[in-house]
Nucleic acid binder design. Structure first.
Length: 847
RNA sequence: GGGCGCGUAGCUCAGAUGGCAAGAGCGCUUCCCUUACAAGGAAGAGGCCGGGGGUUCGAGUCCCUCCGCGCCCA
């Protein structure tokens, strides 16, 4: 019986990607079936890549990991909900739109429905409304998304491409505003006038999660303050320019040098302000002279001192990083006129000169290097200014909430497990709530207005919330409920909240956006809480934590059950690959050079959470594996089909038993998120299948030992091929699909994951050692030929296998296969203590 | 300074609950065009598992300590 099998004469990898991408798209292979119920669904909270950036191999790496899991669960019978998001919210996009079109966002302007951007960016940026700006953003990112999608498709991500979202699109804005309004209604969001970290370049407040310390040069300046008894009190400071903002002098309560001074009044140099001497445990006796000036505000410790010691405010730095023009009360305005309006650096220079002249600078400044807080995207040190900001509670000021959120972290299944610690350290170390307002113009605006009193002053205590049914709104162009647009910014009318939300305030809702929260309750119920959040480890403190917090408030639950944290891709120098370092590799070029399956093989061999070197050698190995699969499949499928036959021979049944174990191993590995282990097991097994089993049964498969033994071999070969194709399918989607199409209907990616039980049932009570005994004997025979420098096909007259009686008993069951594979006319055995083989080579007849 | 991870053949890495006389691939050496595969196949060489202590019948695997590297945080 010869069934038509479409096995090519010279199978090749070239062209498979374009071919199968087309078929998968046409057949809807990866489409989500939304009639599936929640327990039949596996849903993935795909990280939305920043479209204004470029994809690099790091993306290839981690997105491949997720895709292998998606494909595995699909084959396990789940409906996989695997959408793709695009992150086009936030500063990178804002800057890109500005530069590309030569415009800037001005929310005070009305929307112009006929607006068209200038042909070429002009000299001056053209101010446009927020809505127009968002439209340009969507226009620009649409092309970026195309490029990204092409790459993802080439890589073979099994995304349902009907399911995409963008973080600035209407649905995302609606979800973001809705969640905020609900936080506000429940008291989880609040606004407060308070000192907060401020970036003077971007002129916006920034959150604790966006800070980073950078080592910067500075200098200790020793200043002479005056005690009430007229003696000097020396204080070291790195920020003498803040002297005018000094509100107190502090020392440690146990510091005997200063104990007598506590409660007394100290006079500051130059400005002659009278400030109290106070005690606080955060004052470090070993730093400088042990006494420090408290300024409003030089650093975060100043904020703590100011708050806990109930000190007044004497603010001198404005939001642009310059000193305010008018001196604060209580200081000598004379010297202040010298520094008013200067930048912080300029003020420092002048202050030092003034202190030198007055003799109040003791000695020369002593240069040091110290950590300074920066906005992670900023270039100038952060200042601390007092401003009105929106916050969402995150446990930073509430132990009970903090404990609850740490509890959520413990509920979550972390892959790898040790990443949980990063979450706990971060949440445990919070020192304030999450500041979500940004004084930017592009982004999701707060759906909030304020009533204006008769004098036109906003009443911040009575914010007017948007109607949920009308979201998303832009308060700068939409009027609040109960007001007409002509009451905007008029006494007795209303004014819009000018701020936008932090990008994390929107991306923390990615599960809600992806699952159509409130927009499609039926779909939401089938997909949320999600199963998997894949992401990078450096944004555990931001994206992961914020997402957990929002879901905790909104649903009292985790947003997903598992978080899979990926590692970095390192270059050969063990440094993280990134574009800025100039060592990043272009993904498309790599894809074209090695093929998607090869690149995926490299990516999938990086264990979960482990940093992995970018190594072309691994890609070559992946390519070789894919070619091997083609060739081995050609051999298996080139035989007569073995319909209705069964595994009768010992060697065949031993292979089936081994395959049962392999399936168990790979399945268990996938179930704990360890795709790399599943690949490694499968690959190791597959190579021994081709190297040993295939050679051992070749003669039988060709019919050398008659019908039943041959059918057994062919049947087992087919069964094994079926299993290997399925186990490799999550990693090598193209080559496995290609081979599948030679003899099977449908897609391997929609086929059922193999069942270990079925394989073992057919194997019966075979001794699984038979395969190893046969392979060992064959290896010894090969060695004899190799040592004799003859070809492997050379015939052996008589071979004698010496081994233990136990192993010889097993060998007896597979002896014919060994003799055939070794080309031995006669195979004898002798009992001994360990395996050895001797052989008499047959004389080669001259060809 | 704190936390986490890592340090196993020249290179890239595996080595669950301690049993290994230490594994894979690449690279290297030698051989082989055998009817799946010469962009291949076979065989082989190569390691005091970062150093030092300890627990144990037994440690790459557990504990302590030191050294080096990376990341996160302060």
């Amino acid at each position: 019986m010869t069934a038509p099998r479409n096995v090519p004469e010279k199978p090749a990898l070239e062209g498979l990607e374009a071919k199968w991408d087309r078929v998968w798209e046409a057949d809807g292979t990866y489409r989500f079936d939304r009639t599936a119920t929640r327990d039949q669904v596996y849903s993935i909270d795909t990280p939305p890549p920043t479209v204004s950036g470029a994809l690099h191999v790091g993306h290839i790496f981690s997105y491949t990991h997720t895709d292998t899991l998606a494909r595995y669960h699909r084959m396990r019978g789940k409906q996989v909900y695997y959408p793709m998001g695009w992150d086009d919210n936030g500063l990178p996009t804002e800057r890109r739109v500005q530069n590309f079109f030569g415009v800037r966002c001005d929310p005070s302007l009305p929307y112009d429905p006929d607006f068209a951007p200038p042909e070429a960016p002009g000299k001056d940026e053209l101010p446009i409304s927020r809505r127009n700006f968002v439209e340009l953003c969507e226009q620009l990112t649409a092309t970026d998304e195309q490029v990204f999608e092409q790459l993802w498709r080439r890589l073979g991500l099994s995304i349902d491409w009907r399911l995409t979202y963008a973080t600035i699109d209407e649905r995302s804005r609606r979800a973001s505003q809705r969640a905020f309004l609900r936080n506000l209604a429940r008291g989880e969001a609040y606004q407060q006038e308070a000192p907060s970290l401020w970036d003077v370049t971007f002129r916006t407040a920034v959150a604790q999660a966006e800070l980073e310390d950078r080592e910067r040069p500075g200098a200790y300046h020793r200043l002479a303050f005056k005690r009430s008894d007229g003696r000097d009190l020396l204080i070291d400071t790195t920020r003498p320019e803040l002297l005018a903002a000094c509100v107190a002098v502090v020392a440690h309560p146990d510091d005997s040098r200063y104990a007598p001074l506590f409660g007394q009044t100290i006079t500051t140099p130059l400005f002659k302000a009278a400030v109290p001497m106070v005690a606080h445990t955060l004052a470090d006796p070993d730093k400088g002279t042990g006494a420090a000036m408290i300024c409003t505000f030089g650093d975060t410790t100043d904020v703590i001192w100011w708050r806990e010691l109930d000190l007044p405010v004497r603010a001198i730095v404005d939001r642009g990083g310059r000193l305010v023009s008018d001196p604060p009360p209580g200081i000598d305005p004379g010297p202040y006129a010298e520094i008013a309006g200067r930048t912080v650096n300029g003020a420092q220079q002048r202050i030092v000169e003034l202190l030198k002249e007055s003799g109040e600078l003791i000695g020369d400044p002593r240069p040091i290097t110290h950590p300074v807080k920066f906005f992670e995207k900023g270039q100038r040190p952060l200042e601390i200014v007092t401003s009105r900001q929106w916050y969402i509670r995150n446990g930073g000021r509430d132990q009970k909430l903090r404990d609850a959120l740490i509890g959520r972290g413990r509920e979550l299944n972390w892959v790898p497990e040790h990443m949980r610690v990063r979450y706990e350290n971060w949440v445990g170390g919070l020192n304030g709530d999450w500041l979500i307002s940004r004084q930017r113009f592009f982004g999701v605006p707060f759906p909030i207005w304020y009533p204006l009193d008769a004098d036109g002053r906003p009443d911040y205590r009575r914010p007017i919330a948007a109607d949920e049914a009308r979201l998303p709104v832009d308060p700068s162009s939409d009027a609040p409920p109960g007001y007409a647009e002509d009451r905007r910014d008029r006494p007795g009318g209303f004014t819009a909240d000018p701020d936008v939300m932090d990008t994390w305030a929107t991306s923390s809702l990615s599960p809600h956006i992806a699952c159509y929260w409130e927009d499609d309750p039926d779909l939401f119920e089938r997909t949320f809480p999600m199963d998997l959040r894949p992401q990078a480890h450096e944004i555990i403190r931001t994206w992961l934590f914020a997402t957990v917090t929002r879901a905790h408030f909104e649903h009292g639950a985790l947003p997903w059950s598992t978080a899979a944290i990926s590692g970095w891709v390192l270059d050969p120098d063990r440094k993280k690959m990134s574009k800025s370092k100039g060592n990043a590799v272009t993904p498309m070029a790599t894809l074209e050079a090695f093929g998607a399956d090869a690149l995926r093989y490299w990516a999938a061999s990086g264990r979960p959470g482990t940093d992995t070197a970018f190594e072309e050698g691994q890609m070559k190995v992946g390519r070789r594996l894919a070619v091997k699969i083609l060739n081995a499949s050609r051999f298996v499928l080139g035989q007569e089909p073995a319909a209705d036959s069964e595994a009768a021979e010992t060697l065949d049944r031993a292979l089936l038993a081994h395959l049962g174990d392999l399936v168990d191993d790979a399945t268990a590995a996938f179930d704990r998120g360890d795709y790399a282990r599943a690949l490694e097991s499968t690959e190791t097994s597959f190579w021994s299948f081709t190297d040993d089993y295939l050679e051992l049964v070749k003669n039988r498969a060709y019919g050398g030992r008659g019908g039943r033994a041959g059918a057994s071999a062919r049947h087992t070969l087919e069964t094994a091929l079926d299993v290997y194709l399925k186990l490799f399918a999550p990693f090598l989607p193209y080559v496995t699909e290609e081979v599948w199409s030679w003899w099977r209907q449908g897609s391997v990616h929609r086929s059922a994951w193999p069942e270990a039980g079925e394989l073992r049932a057919e194997a019966g009570d075979v001794n699984p050692a038979a395969a190893a005994v046969a392979a060992d004997a064959l290896r010894e025979i090969r060695r004899i030929k190799s040592d004799a420098k003859v070809r492997l096909g050379a015939a052996i007259a008589t071979a004698t296998v010496t081994d233990t009686a136990e192993r010889l008993a097993v060998l007896a069951q597979v002896a014919e296969d060994v003799a055939d594979a070794g080309r031995c006319r006669e195979l004898l055995t002798a009992v001994g203590t360990e395996l050895s083989v001797t052989a008499e080579l047959e004389a080669e007849t001259a060809a």
